[in-house]
């Protein structure tokens, strides 16, 4: 437990070192989450559009036959 305390204390610099790592991880996770959600959203929207287009084309070719 003592070493954990020492780790938190960081030789008196804990108040500077831990926020640096904390904010660093938070910012990288945030950018990753935003990028992931924007990719999923855009690809889902495209998929819906392409499916309706395929369905319509299928119907068109059936009525032509």
């Amino acid at each position: 437990m003592e070493s954990f305390q020492a780790m938190l204390h960081m030789g008196g610099y804990g108040g500077y070192v831990w926020p640096a790592y904390g904010v660093g991880i938070a910012v990288l996770v945030l950018v990753l989450a935003l990028s992931l959600s924007s990719a999923r959203k855009a690809e889902a929207e495209l998929e819906v559009l392409q499916q309706t287009r395929r369905a319509r084309r299928g119907k068109d070719s059936e009525s032509q036959e």
């Binding site: 990719a39 690809e43 929207e45 495209l46």
Partner: peptide
């Protein structure tokens, strides 16, 4: 490596958005 992963994810989002615009 993190940058490459994000570049791929955001690139995919941009390409999909562009295709959506063209279809619309």
């Amino acid at each position: 490596a993190y940058w490459i992963s994000i570049l791929i994810l955001r690139g995919r989002a941009e390409i999909a958005a562009q295709k959506v615009r063209i279809i619309r």
